[in-house]
Amino acid sequence: MSSVIQTDEQPGTRPERRPAGRSVLMCRPEHFSVVYRINPWMDPAQPTDTSLALEQWQVLHDTYVGLGYDVRLIDPIAGLPDMVYAANGGFVIDGVAYGAKFTHAERQPEGPAYMDWFREAGFDVQVPEEVNEGEGDFLLVGDGILAGTGFRSHSLSHEELARISGREVVTLRLVNPSFYHLDTAVAVLDGTPGQEHIAYLPSAFDEASVGVLQERFPDAIIVNETDAAVLGLNSFSDGCNVVIAARATDFERQLREHGYNPIGVDLSELLLGGGGVKCCTLELRR
């Protein structure tokens, strides 16, 4: 284990929050619906509104554009209603795209579709041998990668990613099925090496994983169950601006207290499929 990351989050001495440029991949929810159940959020008996999902997604897209992000789009494919959750399509770092290999049969065709896009965009695509769901379970923090397991990504994929990336990969075990991907339980607020800062929900993890998070990120923001239940942690930050679920009001308060600029958006329709801001956002790192 690497040395403990010590950050000072006291007012007046905390790092100055400065936005960094972001390049992201998104997918319009043109075929969004809930027709199967592969997580606790999904209920095929509950009606969904594709047009509303598109409207809400467009607000997120336009928010990113307004922040100056480079926003790329992958074409949605009929029959793949969860393709809107682009974060699960792979993990991209240093120009290398580690592809996704989905757990559930309903989503497995998404893996090759995203890898095709990565190739066409000029990334070095690494076809996975192990089951993983991309940036849903892999989060870059500083020079290392936090990696989730327990429901979707197999821990062997953590070893595979460590070999491919040459970076330390730290395994965290998820235990609450409502938080089945790491990006539903951890938000990377500042990934700058030396001033790493995150937010997380302790009850989403086993005891050993909570210990790892406490040791590495002693100044982390602890989010309450209410905000986590609207996927408030499923957010996207550029180090200053943090796009979050609009209903995560206490998280918004905490972010402001720590010098961030929270921006709330309503993705309530996409929440019916178990996804939020981060789920719709795959970061492209050259």
Rank of each mutant, 00 (worst) to 15 (best):
N132L: 04
E135I: 01
V4E: 12
I93F: 04
G239C: 05
D137A: 06
L172P: 01
D183V: 05
L231Q: 09
L140H: 03
A45T: 12
Y200V: 12
D49N: 12
R28N: 06
E252L: 08
S165C: 02
D219C: 15
R256L: 11
I221M: 15
A100K: 03
T63M: 08
A246I: 10
D116E: 15
F91V: 06
A245Y: 01
E269T: 09
N241M: 02
L284T: 06
V59G: 09
V186A: 03
D82G: 08
M1R: 09
M115L: 07
D8M: 11
M1P: 12
E196R: 05
G264M: 06
G136W: 00
G264E: 13
G90M: 01
F138Q: 04
V243K: 07
D8V: 14
E207W: 10
G122K: 04
L213F: 07
E269F: 04
L201E: 05
L60S: 05
E215R: 15
R285W: 11
I164T: 14
R247A: 14
E269L: 03
V188F: 07
A147F: 05
R253L: 09
P19N: 06
W117R: 05
E215G: 15
V96A: 03
V210H: 06
V59Q: 10
N234Q: 06
P177F: 00
K278Q: 14
A220S: 14
E160F: 08
S155E: 13
E110S: 07
V131C: 12
F102W: 06
H181F: 04
E55R: 13
Y114L: 00
L231H: 11
W41Y: 07
A208C: 13
S209R: 07
P19Y: 04
A97W: 01
I74W: 03
P109H: 00
H181K: 02
G194N: 01
V96G: 03
P11G: 02
L233I: 07
P177L: 00
L174Q: 05
R14I: 09
P76L: 03
S178I: 03
N261C: 10
S157K: 01
L60H: 09
L172F: 08
F102G: 04
L54H: 11
W57E: 01
D227Y: 02
I164R: 12
P11W: 11
P128D: 00
P15E: 01
Q195Y: 03
G259V: 14
P109F: 03
Y200P: 05
V65G: 07
L54Q: 15
L60E: 00
L146I: 11
N39V: 08
Y200R: 01
D227L: 01
Q195R: 15
L201V: 09
L231P: 07
E215M: 14
G211F: 04
V265C: 10
N88G: 08
V242M: 02
I222A: 13
I263P: 09
S155R: 13
S203W: 08
H61T: 07
I5R: 12
R285I: 11
P262F: 01
T63P: 04
E130D: 14
R22D: 04
E110N: 04
V34E: 13
D190L: 08
A199D: 02
Q214H: 15
M115E: 14
